[in-house]
Amino acid sequence: MIQSSHSEAAPQADDRAMAIRDHLRDAIVEHRLVPGTKLSEAEVGKLFDVSRTVVRAALQSLTFEGLVRAERNRGAFVASPSPEEARQLFEARRQIETGIARTAAINGKQADFARFEACLATESRLIAERGPASRRASIRASGEFHLLLAEIAGNAIMQRFMEELIARSSLVIALYGRTGASSCGHNEHGDIVAALRDRDAERASALILQHIDHIEADLDLRAYAERPLRDALLL
């Protein structure tokens, strides 16, 4: 009987942890929980009426996604890339992605362009939708466009670099993007694909450089005023 009761309780705890994760993620992406905010296990547990074990599972999931950082003996905090870290991130992307675009223009095949079109169609659908879930999905889809570009270029080492850069960029964009344009200009993606189809390596490289400039320009890296956890979570 004890074992059966435990097996029933475990899925419920997992569901609660994922629900709390989603609440916290929405608050982070919507800027209600600002970078650097401490996420106290005890306070979050009290707000959601769950154990600290459940809260810890939710925070661990967000840490894996890069939205939360865990500090030994201090606890969990909303991740807070500094303005300098953000600038270095986008400078790295400029240097790497311009070369990737040139190579993709040479290596791209017809099947690859079909994958690009599918990616652009997904972006169009998400842009037309509203709400935090759609915004998160739009940022993710935009990142996938850049990862596809790296994959088509055919350099496995560069592709792994891009996976890290895009993951960190998505965090910065989710936290600091102002207008939604920073989740990547859909029209600019289409222009890049057109240059790739034309095998115009220099134009593709110039367009990706301009595109990254636009993403960075849409970021607001000023400090945010911290809000109480209850208010930020709208509880």
Rank of each mutant, 00 (worst) to 15 (best):
S61K: 13
E43S: 02
R203P: 08
T103N: 13
V54F: 11
S82K: 05
L126E: 02
L209I: 04
A118Y: 11
D200R: 03
D198E: 15
D49K: 13
L59W: 06
A150T: 03
S124W: 07
S183E: 11
L233S: 00
R168S: 10
R178L: 08
E129A: 14
N155D: 13
Q12H: 13
H189S: 08
H186C: 05
I20R: 00
V172D: 01
E188C: 04
D15M: 10
S80D: 10
G180W: 03
R21H: 15
M158Y: 04
Q3G: 01
A19P: 09
D49R: 11
E151W: 00
I96T: 14
E226C: 01
A121I: 07
F90I: 07
K38T: 02
Q110S: 14
E164T: 12
Q210E: 12
N107G: 11
R203A: 14
A19G: 08
F48L: 06
S170L: 08
I157Y: 08
L147Y: 06
C119H: 08
R52D: 15
F90A: 09
G45A: 14
F77L: 03
A58M: 04
F77T: 05
R168D: 06
I173R: 02
R102H: 02
A86V: 15
L207A: 01
A58E: 02
L120K: 03
P228D: 13
D49M: 12
V29L: 10
L126G: 07
F48D: 05
L120N: 06
I152K: 03
R102S: 03
D26P: 03
G75V: 01
T98N: 02
L229V: 14
S80R: 06
F77C: 06
Y176K: 06
A42E: 14
S61E: 14
